[in-house]
Amino acid sequence: MKLNYKLQGDGQPIVFLHGVFGSLDNLNMLAKDFVQHHQTVQVDLRNHGNSPWSDKMDYQAMAEDVAELCHDLQLKKLILIGHSMGGKVALQLSQVIPDLIENTVVIDIAPIKYQRSANVIILRVLTYCLANQITDKKQIMDLMRQEGINDAIILFLLKSFKNEHWLFNIQAINEQYGHICDWQTISPWLKPTLFIRGGNSPYITDQAYTAIFEQFPNAKIEVVEGAGHNIHFEKTQQVLQLLHNWLGD
């Protein structure tokens, strides 16, 4: 699948991979910092942004999409930076294009299987809006608030609502959400891997450390205190400092 992407700058390439319901702009606050000394590649994963839609959405398929893009752009010595679902795609790429990857950074996700989580509520509202052809932004916001979805998440979701149309594929994400939560254990990957954990986030727990180090023996885990799941939004400067320290920039 030919993914939509934004390419900027020169130097060692960094590929940025967003989370579910996101788009290539979600990691823009990181990419715009690194574009001074790197070639940055911001990607819309399948069923998101301006990339094609598909009924299939497991990590092997998503990783193969990104691998195809990397081959098309002739990228080498890659640095991968992925948040949440995009972090799992980055980890899966270690099995797909191992010779092209030099370093991987994963923001607030672990190589484990998750339960359906709070996104179930979001999917229920989105599916309801889709089925009932609700395209009024205020009505959508009211429905989300009634379900207890906070305003920060609502504003994040609405970034992908353009011209009365959702840029992400609600039906496919809903039907494939079990695959998005899932993870198939991989053989140990020995290259450097940084995991950045939000101190207030439930996504990387102490119990997940075993799975991390079994699959990524040379991993390092950094905790950003006071941050939730969207660490790069909440604590941008701290995340950038961790990235620069890790990458030696």
Rank of each mutant, 00 (worst) to 15 (best):
N4I: 10
Y5S: 05
Q8R: 14
D10H: 15
H18Y: 04
F21S: 00
S23Q: 15
L27K: 00
L27M: 09
N28I: 11
V35D: 06
H37M: 13
Q39S: 01
T40H: 01
T40S: 05
T40M: 03
V43Q: 00
L45E: 01
N47P: 04
S51A: 09
P52L: 02
W53D: 12
S54H: 05
D55N: 13
D65S: 01
V66Q: 04
L69S: 06
H71G: 10
Q74F: 06
L80A: 02
H83F: 10
S84T: 04
M85H: 00
G86K: 03
G87K: 04
L91A: 06
I101T: 07
V106M: 01
I107T: 01
I109N: 02
K113D: 13
Q115Y: 11
A118K: 13
I121R: 10
R124D: 15
L126P: 02
L126A: 03
T127R: 14
Y128H: 15
L130M: 12
L130P: 10
K138F: 08
Q146S: 12
I149D: 05
I153S: 07
I153P: 04
I153A: 10
L157F: 07
S160A: 12
F161V: 02
K162S: 12
K162H: 13
N163L: 11
E164P: 09
I170A: 08
I173A: 06
N174Y: 14
N174S: 14
H179T: 13
I180W: 00
D182C: 01
W183Q: 06
T185K: 14
T185P: 09
I186F: 03
W189A: 11
K191T: 11
K191Y: 08
T193N: 07
I196V: 15
N200W: 10
S201Y: 09
P202G: 00
Y203F: 12
T205I: 06
D206I: 10
D206Q: 11
T210H: 12
A211I: 00
I212D: 01
I212P: 03
E214S: 10
F216A: 07
N218V: 04
K220Y: 00
I221R: 01
I221D: 05
V223F: 03
V223C: 06
V223M: 06
E225N: 14
G226S: 02
G226A: 02
G228L: 05
H229E: 06
H232G: 05
F233Q: 13
Q237R: 11
Q238E: 15
Q238C: 12
V239I: 10
V239P: 07
W246S: 13
